[in-house]
Design a protein around this nucleic acid. Structure first.
Lengths: 254, 254
DNA sequence: CTTGACATTGACGCTGCGTAAAGGTTTATT
DNA sequence: AATAAACCTTTACGCAGCGTCAATGTCAAG
């Protein structure tokens, strides 16, 4: 049985380029060349190709394969044993690489967390600074420098998770407050729930809680124009509604 | 601090070619180019090079490194994790290769043994044929066809190891016999040791042993010219000496 | 006779440099 | 100041094992 280059390639599962290359480097020459210059392979070439592919799969390079094919079994075993050694070395090399990559992952992840933490600290600092700029004077006047410092201190000590939880509470507080405003009843359950969320928020922000201060803040929202505007810009009358709800919640007024 | 290409190379342990190549593919460009066209590197470039080498050691290719260097830590971790995956895959690939190489070694070694065995069988066959050609008639006459066939049968069933052991014994027998001949005493300890080795050799060759046959062979050495010549060509009188020693050993004569 | 599937040789490309070659610059020595 | 030694530059081939054009020739089928 004779084969053209393509037939042989299909039979063995390699490209024609590969076969031409093998011819070129002399490890698999065709049985004969047809009158038109085509490469014609026979059974013997199939057998050789099988062997080439076999050793190739074992990871030998072609020049080694060339030598192996033309050597007695004895030397084949030698080559195989040496190859095995090389493979084992390669494997321990890779093991080492894996270990180092793992180390590197741990290190880089650690750095990310560190960096995130630093960024968060910076972020909190900037928040405090902005707050100072905007409200510093007013809140110090109302609550005294000591209380404000204490609040800041608490904020600075807050972890990222705590901060996120605080943001979360604030978000729910805003939603609940708007829902409650629609009912128009500052003593109703929704409004009281909003007041409770507000309490939690303050507790987070200040680090402690007392009813008087809470009611004081509520009064602030109404008294100080900038705070009033902050709440009323979404819903006119919201600041006053919140103050009523909180006064009821804290028992300062029914 | 500024560095020429060679200085940087020595600092980092890479060739100037490498640095030029890194410049060429754009992963490490010099800080500036001197008026004479020299590449000048600064501290920043050292840092980048360190990183390049770091990732290179982990087995990344340069185009991956290029991307990693210009990506945030977050993506670096992603790349590292993917790389680890690839490494693990590669390792199991190699494991597979090792297994197959081992199989192949076992197979090829098995074939060698088979082939050796066949060769050995052929070798023994040829030995028997040569023996037949040379001595067939004579030994059949002396010992009978049955005894000779039995001997051949035993020889055919001999393993390679057994055959080698037999050769070994023959060698020691020849050496001892020559030593004994120098003493001139066929009843002496050396001559008796030679006779004993000769007995062992016969036992190997025939598969069994009896004193009469042993003495018969000894007589043969003297009676049959060809055998006599075989021993006497090293030492004239050796065949006769051996006969005496064996007769004494077997108790046929004192 | 045309078409499509096949064949040929030749040559570039990929990776990550090593290794010249041919020439210019800097530094040290005479 | 001349010269040599040491350094720099760009250009380009080579390595392994093919993939992938490109340009061109051949064969079997309709």
């Amino acid at each position: 049985m004779e084969y053209t280059i393509k037939k042989l390639g299909q039979l063995a599962g390699v490209s024609t380029r590969t076969l031409r290359y093998y011819d070129e480097i002399g490890i698999l020459k065709p049985a004969r060349i047809s009158s038109s210059g085509y490469r014609i392979y026979g059974q013997k070439e199939i057998d050789i190709l099988q062997q080439i592919l076999f050793y190739r799969e074992l990871g030998f390079n072609l020049s080694d394969i060339r030598e192996i094919l033309s050597s007695p079994d004895f030397d084949k075993v030698k080559a195989l044993k040496e190859h095995k050694k090389r493979l084992i070395e390669k494997r321990s090399q890779i093991d080492l690489l894996i270990k180092n990559v793992e180390k590197s992952i741990a290190y880089t992840e650690g750095r990310i967390k560190m960096s995130d933490k630093e960024k968060f600290e910076g972020f909190k600092q900037r928040l405090i600074e902005k707050n100072e700029e905007k409200y510093g004077e007013e809140i110090r006047e109302k609550y005294g420098a000591e209380a404000v410092e204490k609040s800041y201190e608490n904020f600075r000590n807050m972890s990222k998770e705590q901060y996120e939880e605080m943001q979360n509470i604030e978000q729910r507080f805003r939603e609940t407050l708007l829902e409650a405003f629609k009912t128009g009843d500052p003593a109703g359950p929704l409004a009281q729930k909003a007041a409770d969320l507000h309490k939690q928020w303050i507790t987070y922000a200040w680090g402690d809680y007392n009813k008087e201060a809470h009611a004081g803040v509520a009064q602030l929202y109404v008294d100080v124009k900038r705070f009033t505007e902050y709440y009323d810009k979404d819903q006119p009358g919201l600041a006053s509604f919140l103050k009523d709800a909180i006064f009821i919640y804290t028992g300062m007024q029914k």
